[in-house]
Simulated assay, not measured.
Amino acid sequence: MTTASEVDVVVAPLPRSEAPGSYVDWPAIIAGIIIASAIALVLLSFGSAIGLSLVNFRAEPDVPAIWIAIAAASWLLWVQISSFMAGAYVTGRMRKRHLDSDEEESDIRDGVHGLLVWAGALVVGGLIAAGGLSAAASAVGSAASTLTTAAATVADGAGAAVDPNAYFVDSLFRRSPGATAPAADTTAVRAEAGRILAQGELGNGVGDTDRTYLADLVAQNTGLSPEQATTRVSDVLSAVDNAKAQAAAAAETARKTGVLAAFLTAASLLVSAAGAYFAAQKGGNHRDERVSFGTAFRRYR
């Protein structure tokens, strides 16, 4: 009688991964970076053409600045989120799936690839912006050099350099219609008045002693009465104070605008990082589920 011999069955373990090596799929990441950068460039160019830009936003003069900032920030947020999510989705869809992980681990790896697309696109955009700023600085420097040369030529031809207080000094010694002024040269007097105004701008304004002295100089060199000269000095000093206040307000507005723009840019980048992580996970899910979007991308035969 023949009996069946026992047979030992050896089960070989399945391969743990489709491809050995790093879990980071750099070709897919580079593809996502290129797509994200291209989409951002297109959208930013379009937005700049219609004025939707933080540096060139066109609006009516009576539109509050807060609405201008909200509109420009919303556009920047849309551009960043949409471009990063598109690039991250492509990376998640194109990434090779390693079989040594469950669904949750695969989703995390897909999301990390989306973050790498976000970071890589930021580096590329930073390099492009740095190159553009260098070119712009070079162009501005050349233009400034040309303007300086032209200004020096004009100043040499006029015999005097441009003084920020020149207009206010001219206002002090401007003759009223019908008034007769002495024929003496007022160059030294004007220079002294300019120094008084400049010292007042550095301190807390022109003091009473200097005000009285300026009124005497104006009365002696313009033919105005002492009362009229005093009134003119007060008016010119008020104009100087207004100009200082306007310059300070403009500087403060520029500072606040810069802080707001930096904050909005950083916030939008953080939001776009979360969007890139989510989009890469969604791309990976569609890769695993073999979602084809047949209605939109059907084959034509």
Score class of each variant (00 low, 15 high):
residue 5 S to G: 07
residue 8 D to C: 00
residue 12 A to K: 07
residue 16 R to G: 13
residue 18 E to V: 13
residue 20 P to T: 12
residue 24 V to P: 06
residue 27 P to G: 09
residue 28 A to K: 03
residue 31 A to N: 08
residue 32 G to F: 04
residue 33 I to Q: 07
residue 42 V to Q: 04
residue 43 L to Q: 07
residue 47 G to F: 09
residue 52 L to V: 12
residue 53 S to P: 09
residue 54 L to R: 07
residue 55 V to N: 13
residue 63 V to W: 09
residue 71 A to Q: 10
residue 73 A to W: 10
residue 73 A to K: 01
residue 75 W to L: 03
residue 76 L to N: 15
residue 76 L to H: 08
residue 79 V to S: 08
residue 80 Q to D: 09
residue 81 I to K: 03
residue 82 S to Q: 02
residue 85 M to N: 00
residue 85 M to K: 01
residue 85 M to A: 15
residue 86 A to Y: 02
residue 87 G to I: 10
residue 88 A to D: 04
residue 92 G to N: 04
residue 98 H to T: 04
residue 99 L to A: 06
residue 100 D to P: 03
residue 102 D to S: 02
residue 104 E to H: 06
residue 105 E to W: 01
residue 111 G to E: 01
residue 112 V to A: 06
residue 114 G to H: 01
residue 118 W to Q: 04
residue 118 W to H: 11
residue 119 A to L: 11
residue 123 V to P: 03
residue 123 V to F: 10
residue 125 G to M: 06
residue 125 G to D: 02
residue 135 A to R: 10
residue 137 A to H: 13
residue 139 A to H: 12
residue 140 V to H: 13
residue 141 G to K: 13
residue 142 S to G: 14
residue 144 A to N: 15
residue 146 T to N: 14
residue 151 A to D: 14
residue 160 A to K: 09
residue 163 D to G: 05
residue 165 N to R: 05
residue 167 Y to K: 06
residue 168 F to W: 02
residue 169 V to K: 01
residue 170 D to N: 05
residue 170 D to F: 00
residue 172 L to D: 02
residue 179 A to L: 00
residue 181 A to Y: 00
residue 182 P to C: 00
residue 184 A to N: 01
residue 189 V to N: 00
residue 190 R to F: 00
residue 192 E to S: 05
residue 192 E to M: 02
residue 193 A to R: 00
residue 195 R to S: 04
residue 197 L to R: 00
residue 197 L to G: 04
residue 197 L to V: 03
residue 199 Q to Y: 02
residue 199 Q to D: 11
residue 200 G to Q: 00
residue 203 G to W: 01
residue 204 N to I: 04
residue 206 V to Y: 05
residue 208 D to P: 08
residue 210 D to W: 05
residue 212 T to N: 12
residue 218 V to Y: 10
residue 222 T to G: 11
residue 225 S to A: 09
residue 225 S to D: 11
residue 227 E to K: 11
residue 228 Q to L: 15
residue 229 A to E: 08
residue 234 S to W: 03
residue 234 S to G: 14
residue 236 V to D: 07
residue 237 L to M: 13
residue 238 S to K: 13
residue 239 A to C: 03
residue 239 A to T: 14
residue 246 Q to L: 14
residue 248 A to Y: 08
residue 251 A to F: 08
residue 252 E to A: 15
residue 255 R to Y: 12
residue 259 V to L: 15
residue 264 L to A: 15
residue 264 L to H: 12
residue 266 A to T: 15
residue 271 V to Q: 08
residue 272 S to W: 12
residue 273 A to R: 10
residue 275 G to S: 08
residue 275 G to L: 04
residue 276 A to E: 04
residue 280 A to N: 09
residue 280 A to L: 07
residue 283 G to A: 10
residue 285 N to W: 12
residue 286 H to S: 13
residue 286 H to T: 11
residue 289 E to Q: 14
residue 292 S to G: 12
residue 294 G to K: 08
residue 294 G to Q: 09
residue 297 F to W: 09
residue 299 R to P: 03
